[in-house]
C-alpha cells in the first residue's frame, strides 16, 4: 500500500504503477459531466476558472445529500469515460495530475496522461457508503446550481484506491482480464 498526499507532482505520479494499491489523503475536487463541460467552455472563452486544477486530483462523483450530522452522503465513483472528451484539455492546459473514477478511458486521455505524467485511479464502483466514511469534510466550491454535479472540495483520509492506468499507459483492466480469460475457442 502506497500512502500519498495531494497535491500530486510528476515525481509522485511517475512512481505509481498500474495495479498499485494507494491510500490517498488530503484535498481533492469533485467533478462530473456538467462541471467538466463548464470548465472547458470557460477556458475556451478565456474566462477565469472557479478552481485551480494544478497538481489536483478530480474525483468523478455526484454524492447523495448528507444526512444531518454527516459530512456527505453515499459517494462512489461514476463512469469515467463520459469525461473523456474534456479530460485531455484539463491535463494538458490546466495541470490536472490525477483522476478517480471507474471504467475504461479513451486513447486520447491515455496519451495526455503519458505526455504530462498524470494518473488514473480506480475506486470501488457501487461502494458509496463505504467510501463516504473516508471523506472528512465536504464543501461546494463551484457551480452550486448543478446540485449533485457541483464541484465539491473534499478532504479525504486514507481513501482506498487502485492505480487503474499509470503514466506509462499500463492498464490494470487489460492485464486482469487477460489473466483470467478462459473463453472456448469457438466463442
Amino acid at each position: 500500500m502506497t500512502e500519498i498526499k495531494t497535491p500530486l507532482d510528476s515525481e509522485v505520479v511517475d512512481n505509481l504503477k498500474a495495479g498499485d494499491r494507494v491510500s490517498l489523503s488530503g484535498v481533492i475536487l469533485t467533478g462530473r459531466d456538467a462541471a467538466h463541460k463548464s470548465l472547458v467552455e470557460a477556458y475556451t472563452a478565456g474566462q477565469d476558472l472557479p478552481v485551480d486544477l494544478r497538481g489536483q486530483v478530480i474525483y468523478y462523483v455526484g454524492p447523495c445529500p448528507a444526512k444531518p450530522g454527516k459530512v456527505i452522503g453515499s459517494a462512489g465513483p461514476t463512469t469515467s469515460t463520459r469525461m473523456d472528451p474534456y479530460t485531455p484539455l484539463l491535463i494538458r492546459e490546466l495541470g490536472l495530475k490525477g483522476m478517480i473514477g471507474k471504467g475504461n478511458r479513451s486513447q486520447q486521455v491515455i496519451e495526455a496522461m503519458k505526455e504530462e505524467k498524470a494518473v488514473y485511479f480506480l475506486a470501488v464502483g457501487g461502494a458509496g457508503a463505504y467510501l463516504a466514511k473516508r471523506i472528512k469534510k465536504a464543501e461546494v466550491v463551484a457551480y452550486p446550481e448543478f446540485g449533485p454535479e457541483a464541484i465539491y472540495r473534499l478532504e479525504v483520509s486514507d481513501f482506498p484506491l487502485i492505480v487503474g492506468i499509470d503514466c506509462y499507459g499500463r492498464n490494470i483492466y487489460e492485464e486482469g482480464k487477460k489473466k483470467y480469460r478462459r473463453m472456448p475457442s469457438n466463442a
Binding site: 464502483g125 487477460k178 489473466k179 483470467y180 480469460r181
Partner: peptide
C-alpha cells in the same frame, strides 16, 4: 469465462 471479473479487475 470472459475474465472481466469483479469491478473489471480480472
Amino acid at each position: 469465462m470472459t475474465g472481466i471479473g469483479p469491478q473489471g479487475l480480472g
